[in-house]
Design a protein around this nucleic acid. Structure first.
Lengths: 365, 365
DNA sequence: TTGTATGCGTTATCAT
DNA sequence: ATGATAACGCATACAA
């Protein structure tokens, strides 16, 4: 074992191994094309003639150093273009200042809202925003969470595809808030089941008696809840509810749904989301089925574009941006200790039906 | 100054200060609700009875340790749910494995494509994706770049709002690739000026002689280039090109444009982007101006929804997702040393006009 | 008020 | 093949 600094006090310098990678200080306005090594606190300290710790305090603890030194250090930092190293801070404090948003598909406009809501709250909290796309794969989702732990301070999961057990596991590993997924983490839920029932009631009130439901991915928690709510309501309202299957929640999936609509002979259909509904509309038009005269279509989400299609889509408006904002808010509060894990979850966010041109009275048989 | 380890070899332990925060090893499947300290390499090493350095090698340098040890370490890591600490790695290697996408407005569907393209390339390269919204503010953009340096390995800038000098400065501080902004960094350019000229020619061929251009933010490099190209083409084609001003490139900006269109008495208008064009369409409809019978409108970007509005929007299709993919590819190649800073920029990506329902022959006066 | 020393978790280097 | 240790940049407990 090597004894350190035993030769005496005066020459017992700390740095024993090979010399520092570079003793050249970072240059100020030097316009060298090769990017210079970024200035470190050490450079700032050297330039202002104080110790590193003093420089550190001057920049992070206003008031714990003399006004004069603080000014000197600040000037030096400015001149060198100093910015603290995120990783170094993270290593020391265990906090990265980064929050991840995990979504199954960045392509989906619904998740754009999530991006917006999250982004807007994170900006306020001066957090950075990591975006993770898991491509609808539970395995990828789990991998992401594993790698995220330590790299981010917490995660917002929109449209989690993990099963309850795994989700519970990861919620123990890092702070997680989910959107539209109650069990078992902290969460924000949007009342889409209620919205779906509203859609059903709307169709029933228009005289439809045989109504289809075109579902989303089997892994979608939200889809399951809607199915249950619809089944219950259908019994109560005494209408035929036809299961039109599970579908990829994208425009491309709509063709299959449209065909199922025709085959099943329903006069109205409630669709998992607007994207899928756009596809349904397109395919029905192709087949010469007139919406809403022959078939009524209701979407879900009220995404960008729902008011642009013709006929404009009747849909369940979902406050998704707000949900994401709220979820991020919950997460940040937890990180800051303002909120405890066992605090009551916020009440479900209400949805409401937006009636446009894609629904009309049922055709006389 | 305190001499370290001077009392002799045998008791000259390294850890002199206060004891380690916790000597309790991370627990395996223990389902304690409070999240346990994440397992470190030290924990893994301890559990498998080897030195930290060996554990490190076993996990990162397959083949440099005996097969048997490697297996033991891997098992231990698995059991503890070990994942390496990003910050620690970053601190040592200077590389974070994170790339930032910087956009002026996450709300704009055009930038969604940028998100998609970037995301898809980053995933291949196993990089994480940081998303930064600068809210159309050059100052915020600069702040972001300052904070990013050290936190990310590089940045893709879509719609940079910084002036050339500042941009050049930051390009020296960290690897940057811009989209639609040639000077002075590495960049990918989409030929929107060419597209705008195509739009103009299209209108001219339909008999329009007095045509407006509704521009975007003055800070948009792309907008400047289009103006120049349009002016040149207008002279060549001998048509009146009317400047309809600069506008916020969002739907809300459209009302002003629509009013300007009416005031200026143009029969056709080329609009900075589709979002703005949607607003124009809406406001013209409100005013009872029939598109395309009375006024023809051409957008730019061919964003989601352009084919959904009525009349469907004639627009310049821009391969924005591909541009973002390419930009990210350039950046990653540079980070990996495959590409040098002075390598030739890729040729401009071609655009093409998509003719839909919002353009028609000019009305007879 | 300022300086000195230490450790965060990881990897590279050196020694065994 | 494996072990010991320095170093990355920063913030803090402690010493002066």
């Amino acid at each position: 074992m090597v004894a350190i600094g035993c030769r005496g006090h005066e020459d017992g310098r700390r740095r024993v191994g090979r010399r520092r990678r570079s003793s050249r200080p970072a240059q100020a306005g030097g316009d060298i094309s090769a990017s210079p090594r970024p200035a470190t606190l050490r450079d700032v300290a050297a330039l202002s003639g104080v110790a590193v710790s003093t420089a550190s305090r001057a920049l992070t603890r206003p008031g714990r150093v003399s006004g004069e030194t603080e000014a000197r250090v600040r000037a030096a930092a400015e001149q060198l273009g100093y910015a603290p190293s995120g990783p170094a801070r993270a290593l020391l404090s265990g906090r990265t200042g980064v929050v991840a948003l995990v979504v199954p598909d960045v392509t989906n406009p619904f998740f754009f809202s999530a991006v917006r809501g999250t982004q807007s709250r994170l900006r306020q909290g001066r957090f950075a925003h990591l975006l993770v796309d898991t491509e609808e794969s539970p395995a990828a989702e789990e991998r992401a969470l594993r790698d995220l732990r330590g790299t981010v301070d917490g995660a917002v999961l929109a449209g989690a595809r993990l099963d309850d057990e795994r989700l519970a596991h990861w919620a123990r590993e890092l702070p997680i808030v989910t959107i539209n997924r109650s069990q078992p983490t902290d969460h924000v839920v949007v009342d889409t089941p209620g919205g779906a029932v509203q859609a059903l009631q709307h169709l029933v009130s228009l005289g439809h008696r045989r109504i289809g439901y075109a579902g989303g991915p089997p892994t979608s928690w939200s889809d399951g809840r809607r199915r249950a709510a619809l089944a219950e309501a259908a019994g109560r309202l005494d209408v035929d509810l036809v299961d039109l299957g599970s579908h990829v929640p994208r425009r491309e999936g709509g063709a299959l749904v449209a065909d199922a609509v025709v085959t099943a002979g329903v006069s109205g259909v409630v669709v998992f989301n607007d994207l899928l509904a756009f596809g349904v509309l397109a395919r029905l038009a192709e087949r010469g089925v007139v919406v809403p005269d022959e078939v009524s279509v209701v979407g879900c989400d009220d995404v960008f574009g729902a008011d642009l299609v013709r006929p404009a889509l009747t849909t369940v408006a979902v406050p998704s941006e707000r949900a994401a904002y709220l979820a991020t808010d919950l997460l940040l509060n937890r990180l800051e200790g303002t909120r405890t894990t066992d605090a009551a979850p916020p009440p479900p966010l209400p949805t409401h039906l937006v009636v446009r041109g894609s629904t009309a009275p049922a055709p006389r048989p």
